[in-house]
């Protein structure tokens, strides 16, 4: 779940906008380049956006007795690199802020930073490291999607803790408090998201387990 409308002080909201904006601009440039260089990758690009839309619409119950939703940004981050997801994630967050009163416009910069920037970058790094360590494509994708999901909500917790440090235990106490709400709830959801991302990627590529699976999806392998 995202930070609620009007719940970040104006300076924080502005700061997160300023921090997120360059990533979104870089993402637009990268997106245009991909579409120009490999037009046949358009289908996978749209599918990566669609996957994020589906998963972030599904609010799931968790072991903590509360509900949250996955992010679905890992798929696109693995296939196209993290910067593209800054754009696709922003579109989904805007849709939810405008039509569902979920998240918000003043908190959009902060929510873009957690879901569309930190999550995808963590996913992409995990994907590269796991591949280098010799993990299979399926295991690497699973870890990338699941840990990117958790990283998104750890970021949300830190953002709220910066705005609302605990009167007694300070910033660290607030990180733990908000982390207990957001990040712990997210763990089983992140595992489910990792599994579903592997399924979606296999189905989209039709090349499960083959070395060129991701290359086919990104359009780099014809």
């Amino acid at each position: 779940m995202h930070i609620m409308e009007g719940y970040l002080p104006a300076e924080h909201a502005a700061g997160w906008f300023a921090l997120s904006a360059p990533f979104v601009v870089a993402g637009v440039i990268r997106l245009k380049r991909i579409v120009a260089e490999r037009p046949h990758a358009k289908m996978t690009l749209a599918a990566a956006g669609a996957f994020t839309m589906v998963l972030s619409a599904l609010k799931m119950p968790s072991v903590t007795g509360s509900c949250s939703h996955p992010t679905g940004t890992g798929l696109g981050a693995v296939v196209f690199g993290p910067s593209v997801m800054a754009v696709l994630g922003t579109i989904v967050l805007l849709f939810q802020a405008l039509l569902l009163a979920h998240g918000g416009l003043t908190t959009l910069g902060a929510n873009v930073f957690s879901m569309a920037i930190v999550g995808p970058w963590v996913s992409w790094c995990i994907w590269r490291v796991a591949g280098k360590l010799g993990a299979s494509i399926a295991v690497s994708v699973f870890l990338a999607a699941a840990l990117g999901d958790v990283a998104t909500y750890v970021t949300t917790s830190v953002q709220l803790a910066l705005a609302y440090p605990d009167p007694a235990s300070g910033f660290i106490g607030a990180v733990l408090k908000f982390g207990g709400i957001f990040a712990i709830t997210q763990i089983p959801l992140a595992i489910a998201e990792g599994l579903l991302t592997v399924v979606a990627m296999n189905a989209l590529s039709g090349r499960a387990g083959k070395a060129d699976e991701v290359g086919i999806l990104s359009g780099e392998v014809k």
């Binding site: 779940m1 007795g65 709830t185």
Partner: peptide, 14 residues
């Protein structure tokens, strides 16, 4: 549990 949204819980914590 009540399975409320984590955003509502955060609102309560705030």
């Amino acid at each position: 549990g009540k399975f409320k949204g984590t955003d509502d819980q955060a609102t309560e914590a705030i």
